[in-house]
Simulated scan of single mutants.
Amino acid sequence: MTLLRDEGLTAEELAVWRMLQRAQVRVTRHLESDLLVAHDLPLASYDVLMQLAEAPGRRLRMNDLADRVLLSRSGLTRLIDRLQRDGLVSREACAHDARGLFAVLTDLGAARLSEATPTYLRGVKSQFIDLLAPDEIARMRTLLARLAEPS
């Protein structure tokens, strides 16, 4: 196909890119389904709760949280609104910046995360880790670290 050559991609390179996209979608859909069925918790909500749980003081500035999750800033704001309504997250003003807000994991949010984490980890194991040999996991880590580096 001429378009591929014109853009500097071979058919194989494009196929690998598409396989990576399909693999990510397949695993994500499986995790999403498991979390929704077992815990009524969307994957994006789980990700936000996990990011907050791992942060010092279980809190992150909204801008920092947006950089860590795969949501737009407006999408994150809507998600935090829902999590706050459910009592899983609270918002607190930043003492040093009147415009800044923190998202804070509540005790209820931590409990919900704790309940959902075994389901999430089982899904990661069955849909990703168990499909790879230990040396493939090590190679995958190296490759993904290179892809995740800022350019």
Rank of each mutant, 00 (worst) to 15 (best):
D107R: 14
R99K: 14
L147H: 07
L88K: 10
V89Y: 11
S33K: 05
E149V: 07
A110W: 05
T142Y: 02
T28L: 03
R26M: 02
K125G: 10
L4S: 12
V16P: 01
L20C: 12
D34S: 15
K125P: 01
A95Q: 08
E54R: 07
L76E: 00
L76T: 03
T106P: 02
R22V: 02
L144E: 12
V89K: 00
T77S: 13
L108H: 00
A11F: 15
D86W: 13
L121W: 09
L31P: 03
I80H: 00
A38T: 06
L76K: 02
T119H: 03
Q84V: 02
D135H: 11
F102S: 02
L3G: 14
G123T: 00
A103I: 01
L88N: 09
E54F: 00
A93G: 15
V89Q: 05
E12I: 07
L65W: 05
R68N: 02
H96V: 14
D135A: 14
W17L: 10
L79R: 12
D40W: 14
A103L: 02
Q84A: 11
R82Y: 04
L108F: 03
M62T: 10
L147G: 07
M62F: 06
R141C: 03
Y120D: 04
A53D: 12
L79H: 01
L31C: 11
P42N: 09
V27N: 09
L4T: 09
L121R: 12
E7K: 08
V25Q: 14
T77Q: 09
V69F: 01
A23G: 04
L14C: 00
M1C: 00
K125W: 11
R141I: 09
A145Q: 12
M19H: 04
S72A: 12
D135C: 02
S126M: 08
L83V: 05
A95K: 13
D81F: 03
P134R: 11
D47A: 05
D40A: 15
S90C: 01
P118H: 09
R5N: 05
R85K: 12
A95I: 02
S151A: 03
F102G: 02
H96E: 15
R99V: 06
T119D: 06
L41G: 05
T119N: 08
G57W: 08
H96P: 00
L9R: 11
S151Q: 01
A133P: 03
L71I: 04
R68L: 09
D130Q: 10
A53I: 00
H39F: 11
D130K: 08
F102I: 01
L76D: 03
V48M: 02
V37Q: 15
L9E: 09
L36S: 04
E13Q: 15
L79T: 08
C94P: 00
Y120V: 06
A111D: 11
D97R: 11
D107P: 04
I80Y: 00
L65Q: 06
Q24Y: 12
R91N: 04
T2I: 04
A66W: 01
R5A: 05
R141L: 13
C94S: 12
E32V: 01
C94A: 05
A138D: 15
L70P: 00
R146G: 07
L147I: 10
R99F: 08
R85A: 05
R91A: 03
L41A: 10
L20R: 14
D97F: 09
W17M: 11
D64H: 12
S72V: 06
A111L: 09
R141P: 00
S90N: 11
L52Q: 06
R26S: 06
